[in-house]
Structures are given as structure tokens and as C-alpha cells.
Design a protein around this nucleic acid. Structure first.
Lengths: 347, 347
DNA sequence: TTGTACGCGTTATCAC
DNA sequence: GTGATAACGCGTACAA
């Protein structure tokens, strides 16, 4: 079935049918109805390739995640949630979503090539990009439309991005701990060549400053967003006797917790612990983790909205969006925090 | 830049350039080299839309996951791994991957519509489909090329699929427990209207039979692949005094473990516990879970290979592939099982 | 071995 | 309001 077949069936020309399909004016109401009826009858859908050839658009957005090893598998709910958010928007706006995943045993250049050479998507969302990622500069070079999740490593002003307020959130964490009387506040960071990791450290520092506490580099362990970095980081920090540890992520904190328990110390009595992201593991930990809650799903949703708006020229690029966060206090920092129920009880 | 521009630059015709690009014969070696050089210089890539219009192919495979609430977020590493496996193959075969995620607050019909009406992908992989899913029948109706992950709910013989040997695996679990002397072996199943869930129950039953143990419906709790179903299921089973529980998945088992601990019983002393899938949670549990190991990633990889082979007519449909599994014995069923090290130790 | 000419299904641009 | 016709960029028989 093609446009012309429909036209013949209705007794009008191709152009009229095309107008109806694309909701264009200059079609009589009666004609429009007759056309719509036949389209419905025949379950007709215009050929996307033919349409793309002439319009230059595919109604597809691409999503590229270069770092699967750390992000995809480490924080194992970050990624599905981001995708879910993006999907939410693509459904609403009637787009499809093309996905690229980086490979551990593949050079960055290869990934960058695959993604940037493919012209099928009308624009891209890229996440978890490090400072040195070639994809980033490449996309800028070839002037591809894209939106970053997290703050861009460079050209910050020129690039479209959606992120959460990492700096403010970390400041809040430090403030919370300082208010509870903690004085030797250490940190195990996330990956520092990524936007989120770097900003959370930045917030930790400015938080200390605002609280009037000294900054001590011995209390800073540069890590990555994974459980084993948390474990190793904590082992490293323990000799320096921190009374509280701010972690770059909840999985990091869960590793740190393991290390603390291993040496027989208690949380929060001996050491307070704070995560970031409010993943499942934060609630499932014993004790549950104080953390920063934010909606990864919402970030994905908004990033996709922004990208599509840019593609359809509804907003002007560059555009920056910073989404809010919320401090969630649990027992890992405050023994008096409200307890939450974990599972539904049997009736 | 189009085909013709390259042709002009080299001083040959469009067709010659096209032949070079598509590795066709009847091009002089000298000419071929000259063309390749200019293509390289200009970083030329043929317009995918134009190409698709004439070939009818896009080099895109679609991936559809209707059930995000349970599968996507519940078993939070199942999904990323499946995608990672599919991605592995698409990279190798030079395909791209179009992703559809179902929405909790969307009727199944809507999802089914979106996926089946989109003609961009050359074929589809569908996962986690229940018996009643309209997508399944729809795809058959419109004769779309697709490969299922898990055993299809109906028309099993006619549908392409890749799955693991769930039945044999469950039998092995029961055999293992019976050998250790357990006699009242209960089960908390996965979702029974999905292939994996149903087959694992089937294997549990035939396993009992082979072990010469009686089947008791009181010892079967029909659940879903999630932690709270495990918790509730275990609460329900406890009054019937099982001495071992076979769970439909590791997350289910981890919920069951919680319930067992809550009433002050010990694993495996009072009740043995076995999971399925060998997710991270299986190792992280205390005690670590005996489980069935299989590679979800491999399933994805093979499913994509099969699909692309079918698209390119390298194999004939329908085609069925069953991948092997491995029983991993840990402390949750056998106190004498070897202990594994969880984290790398600080140097 | 190379070039010519046509077709793929749609949208855009004109006339009517 | 409606209909003819020219693009869009590429693959491919067929002719040279």
C-alpha cells in the first residue's frame, strides 16, 4: 500500500492524501474525512524511508552510553531509569529511540565513530561522558545536535545539557552532618572526570567552607561509582579517623559500610555515612543510608524533551536545565531518623 | 556530499562509486582505489534514507520490552545485560538497535501498536512477554520477523526463540537438594504466565518426580520475579514447614531470606534456599545463595545473531536455540560449599 | 569494465 | 481546494 493506492481508492490525488496525513490546510472537510476513512480501513502508514529522504528527518533520537562497565552495570538502576525517562518522552512525542552501548574491550574511538557516523537519529542524548571522551569533541566538530546528561566537561556554555544540582546537594549533606556535630567529614568521591563526580566533590568542599570546617586532603579518596571503590576507599580512610564519610554514590557507600563493619565499627555511632542517588541499596542497607534523592527518570524525560524541542526548533540552543534534589535523612547519619517500612506485610 | 559528488571528483559515474561502496565486482582495481581514497577524504557516508528507500532495509533491529515495572526495575541487572548482549552483536554485524520500553500506566494495546506499526527496524527481539500480550499475536498476524527471548507462550513451534534450559536447571536444583537429604522442598515461583516462570515450575515438578518425592501443592507459592513476592511467599510457606525452598529468581530468594531471618530461623540449617540467575544479589546475600548461573548477555547476543541471520536469509525460520545453564552451590543450601571472596583487597 | 536510465514513496512547488 | 510534476539520493538492470 502506498500513498497513490490510497489516492486512487478515494478518487483524489497523491498530494491530497499527503496533505491529510500531515495535517496540512487546504483540504476540504468532506475530502479529508473520506481520505481518513480509507487510511483507517487500510491501516496505511507512510513509508518512513521515503518520508525521511525528502524531509531529512526520521523522528528518531539516539542515546549513547560510552561507559557501560562502570555505569551500566555498577549503578544498576541508574541506567534503566534514565532510559525509562527518555522512553516516556519519546512515546509522548512520537519518536523512536536508537541505543548505543559502549563496550569494555573497545577503544573509545571506535564507539565514537559508530555513533557519530550514523545519521539515522535526528539528534543525540549522551550520558556518562568523561573529560577525555572523543565522542564529545567529535559531535561538536561535526555540529551534530545533542543534549548531554550531566554537566559537560568542556565548552559548558555552548552545549545543551540537563543535570541535577550536585553542588548544592553535597553542600546540604555537609551542612546536615556539621549540624549533627560531625567534625572530621571525609569523602569517597565518584569518578572525577565525569560531571556528577566532579561537582559532588566541589559541593563537598564548598560545604565544608560554609560550615567553617577545614579542608583536609587526607580525608579525600578519589574513587569511582562502584561498590569496590567504596570498600577500598573506606579501608584507606579509616586510619585517618573520620567521624563521617560523604560518598559519591549509594553503591560507593554500601561498599564503605562493608569495610566499616569489617573492622568492627558501627554506623552511625562511630562513623556516619551518607550516599547519593537514593537507589534501592540505600533503603536496603543496614542501617539505611542518608542520601540525596533525585529522579534519574525525570532527567531522562527532560533531556529527551529538550532534544526534541531543539530538533523541531521550538527552543533555541544552547539550553541548560538544572533539576532540584532532596536530602533524605536515615539512620546512617542520624539515629533518630524516622524508620521506613521496607516490604509490604502479608495480609 | 552525495554519491554523484564523489563520482565527479574521481571522474567516474555514480554507479561505479556505488559498486565500490557495496563491494561489488566489475570495478577496476585502480579505479576502486581512486574512489576509496576520495570517499575517505570526504568522509562520505551514503544517505541511509535513500538507501533504505531502494533496498527496503535499514540495518536496524528493534528491541521491545513490554513489562518494565517487573522486569526492568525488579531484576535490575537482567535488562542491562540483555541489552549489552544484543549490542555486542549489533556492533559486530553493523546494525543499530531501536528500543521500546513498555509503560506501567499504558495499556498493553498501546505498546503493541507503537511497536508493531513502526516499520523502521528490519526485525524485532521481544522479551518478557506474557501469555496474553497482544504484541505477540499482533506480530504473528502482520507476519513481522521477530525472535523471542524465553519460550513463546503459544505457537511455540512456529516462532523463533532463544532461551535457557530452565526445565533441566530446576530439575538439577531439586536433585541437588534431594541428594543433601532435604525432603519437604517448596517453591516460590516466578511469574507463571511468562516462559521462564512457567518452565522453572515445570522443572521443579519433574525434578521431584525424578527424585521420588511427592508433589504437594501446599508447598507451591505462585509469585512474580520480585523481592516482595519472595518475602510474602515465604511468610505464606513457613507454616507448612518446608526444609528447602526453590525460588524462581535470586531477587525472590533474597526476599524469602528476609522473611526467614525475621522469624529467627537460619539458612541453611532450618531452611535451605536456592535462587535462579546468579545475579549480584546471590553473592551479596548472607549466606550467599545457591543458584543457577546462565548468561543473560549471551542470550541477548545469540538472539540478535539469530535475528540478523534470519533478516539476511542466512538461516531458515523458525529456529529454536536453547542455551545451557550451570548449578552454582553456595552456603544457602550447603554449609560446606566453597566460600568466595567478594571484594578486591586493598594492596 | 563502465555509464545510462529508471524506480523507490514521499513531500514541496507550482499551476489550475 | 485540488492536481500535476519535480525533486530527494541511491541501487540496479541493461546497454555500451
Amino acid at each position: 500500500m502506498k500513498l497513490e493506492d490510497i489516492a486512487k481508492k478515494v478518487g483524489v490525488s497523491r498530494s491530497t492524501v499527503s496533505r491529510v496525513i500531515n495535517n496540512q490546510p487546504y483540504v476540504g472537510e468532506r475530502t479529508r474525512q473520506r481520505v481518513l476513512k480509507v487510511i483507517e480501513q487500510e491501516q496505511f502508514q507512510p513509508d518512513p524511508a521515503a518520508r525521511a529522504l525528502v524531509t531529512g528527518r526520521n523522528e528518531i533520537i539516539g542515546v549513547a552510553i560510552p561507559q557501560t562497565t562502570n555505569v551500566f552495570f555498577g549503578d544498576n538502576s541508574y541506567f534503566p531509569m534514565l532510559l525509562q525517562g527518555i522512553a516516556e518522552t519519546t512515546i509522548k512525542r512520537d519518536y523512536a529511540m536508537l541505543l548505543w552501548l559502549g563496550h569494555s574491550h573497545e577503544e573509545r574511538a571506535g564507539f565514537s565513530d559508530r555513533v557519530s557516523k550514523n545519521r539515522q537519529p535526528d539528534g543525540l542524548i549522551i550520558a556518562s561522558v568523561t573529560e577525555i571522551d572523543p565522542l564529545f569533541s567529535r559531535l561538536i566538530d561535526i555540529k551534530r545536535t545533542f543534549v548531554m546528561v550531566e554537566t559537560p566537561p568542556r565548552f559548558t556554555e555552548l552545549v545543551n545539557y540537563v543535570t541535577i544540582d550536585n553542588i548544592r546537594a553535597s553542600e546540604q549533606v555537609v551542612e546536615h552532618l556539621a549540624n549533627l556535630g560531625y567534625r572530621r567529614i571525609a569523602t569517597i568521591t565518584g569518578q572525577l572526570n565525569m560531571g556528577d563526580g566532579a561537582e559532588r566533590l566541589k559541593g563537598y568542599k564548598s560545604g565544608l567552607e560554609k560550615a567553617g570546617l577545614p579542608y583536609d586532603s587526607k580525608l579525600v579518596y578519589p574513587g569511582q561509582f562502584s561498590r569496590d571503590y567504596g570498600y577500598n576507599g573506606m579501608k584507606h580512610l579509616l586510619p585517618f579517623k573520620p567521624d563521617a564519610v560523604v560518598c559519591g554514590g549509594d553503591t560507593v557507600a554500601s561498599g564503605a559500610l562493608e569495610a566499616i563493619h569489617e573492622v568492627g565499627l558501627k554506623v552511625p555511632d562511630d562513623v556516619a555515612l551518607v550516599g547519593f542517588d537514593d537507589l534501592d541499596v540505600a533503603v536496603q542497607s543496614d542501617p539505611p543510608l542518608t542520601t540525596i534523592r533525585h529522579s534519574v527518570q525525570r532527567v531522562g524525560e527532560v533531556a529527551a524533551q529538550l532534544l526534541i524541542d531543539i530538533i523541531e526548533e521550538k527552543v533555541q540552543a544552547p539550553h541548560h536545565i538544572v533539576l532540584p534534589t532532596e536530602l533524605v535523612v536515615r539512620q546512617s547519619s542520624d539515629p533518630n531518623a524516622l524508620k521506613e517500612v521496607m516490604y509490604p506485610v502479608v495480609a
